[in-house]
Structures are given as C-alpha cells and as structure tokens.
C-alpha cells in the first residue's frame, strides 16, 4: 500500500466521520435542539376544539345519570325478592284454587306491591339523563332488550290475574287462564332475573 493510497483512505474515512449522523464529533453544542420549538402542546396534537372543550353540563348529566342508575340497581335487586316470593306464592295459590279455595288476597296484595316497586325501579332508568350519542352495547344492550320482554309482561300478568279474580268472585269457570297466567309469570320472572344477572357478571 503506497503512502498516496493511505492518504486517500484516510481522507475518505475522515469524510465519513464528519458526515456520519451519529458520530461523536457531530454531537457538539452547535447541534440545534428541535425541542426548542413549541410543537409539543396539546393544541398541536390534532384534536378539534370541540373535543377538548370542558362541558360542565355534560359532567352534571353524567353524575345525575350515575346517581339515578345506582338507585335503579338497588331497587332492582330489592324488587327481585317480592317478585320471586310472589311467584312461589302464586304456585301455592294455584294449588289452593284448584282445590276449591277462592282466597287469592295475599297473592294479589303482594303482586300489586311488586308492580309498584318494579315501576319505581323502571322510572329511575327511564328518567335518567341520556347523553347524546349513547348507543347501548354489550351487557347493557341485553339488559335493555330483556326489558322489552318484562315491561309488557309486568302489565299483562296482573291483568290476567285480575280477570281470574273476577271469575272466582262471580263463580265462573277459569278456563285456561291459570295456565296462561302461570306461563306469562314464569317468562316475566326469568327475563327479569336474567336482565339483572347480565348487569352483574
């Protein structure tokens, strides 16, 4: 290797050193610091002003909604107790009626109390503020779909029971009303308990 070749190689290596981006010589104080610009502010991330706007009314609605749904949850759990008891009592009453008894007083009273408690529970969910863009999904969606089964049944089942009470009072044959009442009440209890369970687990 001649001295001239060595010089060329030395020159090439020195150039490579100076031009390399990660070299030790380049990391001097003369390097510009890009952090000195103001590109790291929240406004520069690309969110719209609407997205970043504080909305106290929305927060208030969320808090009211949470409070009302908490009451809905508590009352809903409480309602399950008289509803289940009413179902069991209904089975006993049906047995007594088939044996000639006409006393359905306790079953009717507990049924009306269950309807009142159920109605109060439902109102806390129906009247809770619903933020814009709210779309039910997941377990909440199942909970809502099931409510479309047990809400109408909560009206129909007592009405059928009332029809049976009228017939009993007038000593008329009940026909297949006890079967219908029992089937609807079973569907009501099953849909209600399922609706409650999906929100818990």
């Amino acid at each position: 290797m001649t001295m001239g070749n060595n010089c060329r190689i030395l020159l090439a290596l020195l150039l490579a050193l100076f031009l390399s981006p990660g070299n030790i010589l380049a990391a001097s104080s003369s390097e510009t610091n890009p952090a000195n610009d103001t590109s790291l502010s929240s406004d520069d991330l690309g969110f719209s002003k609407e997205d970043l706007k504080s909305d106290p009314q929305f927060q208030q609605d969320l808090e009211t909604r949470s409070d009302m749904l908490r009451i809905h949850q508590t009352l809903g759990l409480l309602t399950a107790i008289p509803m289940t008891t009413e179902f069991v009592l209904g089975l006993t009453t049906a047995g007594n009626v088939s044996n000639g008894s006409t006393d359905t007083g306790l079953h009717t009273t507990l049924g009306l109390a269950t309807v009142a408690l159920y109605g109060t529970t439902a109102m806390f969910a129906i009247l809770a503020p619903k933020p814009q863009g709210l779309t039910p999904k997941g377990n909440t969606e199942i909970h809502e779909i099931l409510s479309w089964i047990h809400i109408p049944l909560m009206v129909v089942v007592p009405l059928v029971g009332d029809m049976m009470n009228d017939r009993l009072a007038n000593h008329q044959p009940l026909g297949n009303l006890p079967t219908v009442h029992g089937a609807l009440a079973t569907t009501l209890l099953a849909s209600y308990l399922t609706s409650m369970t999906v929100m818990t687990f």
Partner: peptide
C-alpha cells in the same frame, strides 16, 4: 364493550 360502563 359496554356502553353504560363507559359512561360511568
């Protein structure tokens, strides 16, 4: 995965 939970 649950709208109500997200709102809460």
């Amino acid at each position: 995965g649950d709208g109500n939970r997200d709102l809460h």
